[in-house]
Amino acid sequence: MLARLVVILALALLAARPAGAQGFAGLGSTAAAEGFATPSPDTRLSFPRDHGPHPDFRIEWWYLTANLTGPDGTDYGVQWTLFRTALALGEAEGWASPQIWMGHAAATTPQHHYFAERLARGGIGQAGVHSDPFEAWIDGWQMAGEDFDSLRLTARGAEFAYDLTLSAEGPLVLQGVNGYSVKSADGQASHYYSQPHYRIEGTLTLPSGPVAVSGQGWLDREWSSQPLAADQTGWDWFSLSFDSGAHLMGFRLRGARGDFTSGTWIAPDGSATPLAPGAFQAAPLELADVAGRQIPIRWRVTLPERGLDVEVSPLNRQSWMGTRFPYWEGPVRVTGSHAGRGYLEMTGYE
């Protein structure tokens, strides 16, 4: 009970800061980032080391989304995310640890969206990450394996559970330039890489019972200390996998001075080409009432240099994560010049 109270209080203090001065969930706060490490374009990522935590940086996450299909052809979506946030520099044992962990898990069907949240304090064994062999956990939720190419993923909420195996069928992808991903005209950035090539099989358990599922997964790893500019209020992030075998990661960061967009084109062989700021374009086509908010749930996404002009539509419009920092997160379908499936995350819609 004490652990939960400590974590809730810390998160509440972060959330109490004016949104316009810090961006979504405090990610644009210059004051909070003071003293922490800053991403550098000269850094070269190293594995398996960088699969693990980076306590010199204030914020990071391990984030898996999956498009799955059942035996009868029904489509499903699954999300698993572990966040680490440092309240102060340095390490300490037990309750003195400044590390706060937060886990989100979700399962989406065409009719329902289920989600759960877990909170933990670092230093007491309730949550953490090891790089080799890889293990990320919070309470009973776990992503683990001998290496990053072969993982088992588990989570359980009040109305859903899943137990999935992930097998990489392609290389890791460094986002931006060598894993240095710029997020604003002011130069805010993160270290960012992905594994968009997971083949997934396992069991998804819903109120109606267990379902054998299979499909594709995309895992993102990102860390920074201030990934947003102070005026950026949120983002629209797309991870799209096309029937051709190519992939596209693109994001639109919304700010008082206009949008900042960027992304990466990933060829079927896994080779990645970073996109120049502004090359990726995403425009809302339709708004829907979601949790009392107007959310852009249907989009036109264009990338002229690749001949891409597609419509992105949700499997379930009501894919709202009613967590302490609420956001929209769900599986999407892609039609137009390229066909495929993917995931869409939208934050900062108050």
Rank of each mutant, 00 (worst) to 15 (best):
S150G: 04
F160S: 10
R293C: 02
W265Y: 02
V173K: 03
S181M: 02
D56Y: 01
F47I: 03
G322I: 07
Q175A: 11
I8V: 14
T203S: 14
I138Y: 04
L219E: 03
P284L: 10
S337P: 14
S40M: 07
A127P: 15
L315C: 03
A288L: 12
D72Y: 02
V177C: 02
A189Q: 10
Q188D: 07
R293F: 01
R156S: 15
P331D: 08
E201C: 01
T165I: 14
A10M: 15
E345K: 15
A288W: 06
F47P: 12
E201V: 11
L240M: 12
F325G: 11
Y343E: 13
G270V: 12
F238K: 05
V301S: 07
L228A: 03
F115H: 14
A37T: 03
S97V: 05
G202K: 14
P274R: 06
E34V: 11
E286Y: 15
T108A: 05
R324L: 13
Q175M: 13
A276I: 10
G145A: 02
G255T: 01
W95T: 11
A105N: 14
P210L: 06
G28T: 04
M1D: 09
G52H: 10
A106W: 00
V173P: 07
L285S: 09
A21W: 10
W320H: 04
Q22A: 14
Y114P: 10
L315Q: 05
L166R: 05
A185N: 12
P304E: 07
P314F: 14
T323A: 14
E350I: 08
M249L: 15
E329C: 02
T335V: 15
Q226L: 04
L240W: 00
L87W: 07
L89I: 13
Y193I: 02
V332H: 09
E201I: 00
G234H: 01
D139F: 00
P98G: 05
L68K: 04
E60P: 11
G125P: 00
A276L: 13
F83N: 00
S319Y: 06
A229P: 11
G170R: 06
H104M: 01
T233N: 14
P314E: 12
F260V: 05
P39K: 02
S239W: 09
F280D: 03
R293H: 09
P284T: 05
F115A: 11
L228V: 01
I8C: 15
A291L: 00
A267F: 02
A282L: 13
Q195N: 14
S40N: 08
R341C: 06
M321H: 12
G258C: 08
A291Y: 01
G234D: 03
A107Y: 01
Q188F: 01
E311N: 13
A12M: 11
D50Q: 06
L253E: 04
L166P: 00
M143P: 00
S224R: 09
P314K: 03
E159Q: 07
G140N: 15
D236C: 10
R121L: 13
E345R: 15
A272T: 01
L248P: 15
G330A: 13
A339P: 01
E305G: 09
L89P: 13
R293E: 01
I297S: 07
D149W: 06
H247G: 05
S46W: 07
H247S: 10
F36M: 10
L45G: 04
H54N: 03
D149N: 15
Q226A: 12
R49G: 10
A96C: 04
